[in-house]
Design a binder for these strands. Structure first.
Lengths: 205, 205
DNA sequence: TTTATGATTTTTGTTACAATAATCAAATGA
DNA sequence: TCATTTGATTATTGTAACAAAAATCATAAA
């Protein structure tokens, strides 16, 4: 057959049809056998993976997690308890009550600590604003009332850990507006406490 | 056909053959389509899951066969236990930003920076809670809109710097309750901006 | 009593298939 | 001329089907 002539009859036509890599994963797929109880969870993982692949094409993925820089050079700066005495001390004065280094103040165990950027306004009542860096310690075990970084069905969230009447956990927002509902953990949900939020820090300017 | 007689010829025989649930997952399986690049990582996850399920059965072995637990728990217990080379199971891996040190993040010029403990709730709307440590840089010149540490008639306060209609400065609280009034700076008052609040940090626990 | 053999049934990895989706080219219409 | 529609073509994707392997039981053999 000639391939440079216009053909009326149907047949093979190079370049036509759906493009390779146009699926959600942007790559070839295959099938594999999985236990039925895990299929839902795996599908969730894979759809998240697919989203990431698609976002990667467009923008840099949102930076949420940060880890501590290796070399910590503690610089202790003066802390003033602003009881507001007459005549504020200059930083060189001896009115300094305490010298403080933010890193050592914020972090107990560096190897189990990382940072998360706060996304929404659900914890605004405890002073966690969007853009704040939350200090998360994975080594601490969470107790009721702690602010925790939890994963529910593959999505991360920072909430206050509470307990329902039946004993199952509950994640409480700290926002009086009512725009954020408590998250009740129910049996089919995947739930895991990733770490305890032991502190936070931010830049204003 | 009678089912209580010995048969010579082959055919259906109830109770014979491999037992259901005798696979590595101890439950039924199904097939699902996955991206080829993730198949190896997923297989690793699933073999770990299978090992887990088998260990679980050993713990239950006293009751052995009386009752099989419903596979609800299998769903509730996530696959995200440890990291796989591909980094797939942990959504955290894809969010790892550059490493960060709170001190260097919070402080530009150490020799002109000090900390002040927040006292009241006048700046609660910008996320400054009582007990928070405000990072004050004396070396920066304040512009309208900055959060500043100011001294008014010998008293220190932290407010947002604004400007009145006539051009004189004004210190605005950030608290919607109305319990804190704007501080209007009038000619006879002593007023000085001591530094700009460029950041803050706190401990929750 | 213990071991071996064969039939039967489930598991498990892969292939096959059909419905859907995406893409291009040609045809159609403004 | 340019935009829209239509039809053909090709890839994706979920599921069914298949075959080899593994496990189990009943029976035969040692």
């Amino acid at each position: 057959m000639n391939d440079h002539q216009t053909k009326k009859a149907g047949g093979k036509r190079l370049g036509a049809g759906r493009k390779s890599g146009s699926g959600v994963y942007q790559e070839a797929t295959t099938v594999m056998r999985v236990p039925v109880s895990q299929k839902a969870a795996l599908s969730q993982q894979l759809s998240r993976y697919a989203r990431q692949q698609q976002q990667r094409k467009q923008l840099d993925s949102p930076h949420a997690f940060t880890q501590l820089e290796h070399p910590i050079q503690a610089i202790a700066l003066p802390l003033y308890q602003s009881k507001v005495p007459a005549g504020f001390p200059s930083p060189a004065d001896d009115h300094v009550e305490l010298r403080l280094d933010p890193t050592t103040y914020l972090i107990d165990q560096a190897d189990s600590t990382f940072f998360v950027t706060i996304q929404g306004e659900s914890m605004i009542e405890v002073g966690l604003m969007p853009g704040d860096k939350a200090v998360v310690d994975r080594g601490k075990s969470a107790v009721i009332g702690d602010i925790v970084l939890a994963m529910i069905d593959g999505e991360f969230t920072i909430k206050t850990l509470a307990k329902q009447a039946d004993g199952t956990p509950k994640l409480m927002p700290a926002n009086a507006s009512g725009r954020y509902a408590p998250l009740l953990i129910q049996p089919p949900m995947q739930f895991e406490v990733w770490g305890v939020v032991i502190g936070s820090f931010r830049r204003f300017r």
